[in-house]
Design a protein around this nucleic acid. Structure first.
Lengths: 250, 250
DNA sequence: GCTTTAAATTGATCTGAATCAAAATAAATA
DNA sequence: TATTTATTTTGATTCAGATCAATTTAAAGC
């Protein structure tokens, strides 16, 4: 899992599970081939942990950027504020993901990051990361891949917002969550949403009532079972169909 | 212009205008402080030019990624294809901008890049760029900023698609173009669109008829003058108002 | 030049999602 | 536990933008 063929050194997950550095850096480190020394160097950089309780801010729009944050546990949302007060959720983030990439550009955070459940992150001072990535090319390359992946993800959301209708958006969203839970060893068919209908709506470009109606519709069709925040996927194939055939109709 | 305070070496634009390397790398190189030797090293990497005529592909979805492309002149669009054939435009790109960032992730291009007018690009072999950025930290840092800026840009588009209505989207789009033309030394008040109404619509999540109507509406209000692809901004303040007050109404 | 094809505008109608409104349920707090 | 507050669901209505359709205008090809 998360290993690529070019790895020179395969990290033993069990061995390092208790260490903050490596654990939180699953996405950042594991896939890269690092030797003992390099793992040690990297560990030095990411030693600082931080807990954020539900509802708390990891960072705010406008605050000075110094570090990236690797999510060690928990669940967060990022959102940008419009001048007029309304907020748009730009993403939901879970264990192993990296936050703060948007702030590298201006060294000012361009969004709020808010914990949707008690969470723990590892702080990665960005200047240090750049410094050691000079010494560890595979780390640098992997970091570039992570940034690139974020761009690809955003393009996917743009496609969703630009060309899908409500039900298709929700299906896409649920399948995305499902896959991410699966990747982390949780059930792909049954999970708890950490966010409200309003937050889902904000992310998907829909009003909360529309989100609620789309949930009900999918339930009526026996594709999912909804019990408030608890979601059960009964027919993942049908759910995939829902996602796929937007423009097929035209 | 495009200079930051930490520059150790200020590049003479006139001196290097005829050299492909530096000219095409305005975004990539100029703002970074590089010394003579470093400029030379960088120049070696980006020496390969390529012309694409109107309608031609710079790269296609699914093709192997090896190089980034710095636009030297011209105008391109990038678009992702849905399984069902319809395409969503993810961006319009002009001189000085960098294409291919999305492909670093998987080493496969995730979108098509198509020239909307005869264009010229410089090819930047990505492996080489990573290699020399180890030797030139400021170059590496600037590259990170460019990727980050792309992420910020995408978040802006997500906000647009997720929460603005047609007229606000078009106003935002025109102001964005206006600013980019200004930055490149062209008029911010009068310019030619290189793309069709359909392509604008795809980018903005609207149908071409809606784009056309929004143009007409802005013209009726004497904010812009539209003559097919020729756009004249008559009242930029009012245009900014159009963009800003989406949720103010509610 | 003329002919063909592509692009843009404008009108009429339809529809999906927003909005308004009320009730039901769940979560937080005293 | 009771009370308050936040969240979710569902219904009725409205509206922005999609769709359908017909011209007009511009560009490309012969």
């Amino acid at each position: 899992m998360f290993q690529n063929t070019s790895s020179r050194y395969s990290i033993d997950l069990n061995q390092i599970k208790s260490s903050c550095a490596t654990c939180s850096l699953r996405e950042l480190c594991l896939p890269v081939g690092l030797n003992d020394h390099e793992v040690h160097v990297l560990g030095e950089v990411v030693s600082h942990k931080r807990k954020i309780q539900r509802g708390g801010y990891l960072h705010r729009t406008g605050s000075k950027f110094q570090s990236l944050f690797a999510i060690r546990s928990g669940f967060l949302k990022t959102c940008v504020l419009e001048e007029d007060g309304r907020q748009q959720v730009t993403g939901f983030h879970m264990t192993g993901e990296l936050l703060g990439l948007d702030a590298i550009s201006t060294e000012i955070h361009t969004c709020d990051a808010i914990a949707l459940e008690d969470s723990e992150v590892c702080e990665i001072p960005f200047a240090k990361l750049e410094e050691i990535s000079r010494a560890i090319p595979s780390l640098m390359h992997h970091f570039h891949k992570i940034m690139s992946r974020e761009i690809v993800r955003d393009h996917g959301v743009m496609l969703l917002l630009g060309s899908m209708k409500a039900e298709e958006r929700l299906a896409t969203f649920l399948l995305n969550l499902s896959r991410r839970f699966l990747m982390r060893g949780y059930s792909e068919f049954e999970f708890n949403l950490r966010m409200t209908r309003e937050e889902i709506g904000s992310y998907l470009g829909l009003k909360l009532e529309t989100v609620s109606r789309a949930f009900s519709k999918l339930q009526d069709e026996n594709i999912i079972t909804v019990d408030n925040k608890r979601i059960q996927i009964n027919d993942i194939a049908k759910l995939r169909m829902k996602m796929g055939n937007s423009s097929c109709l035209t």
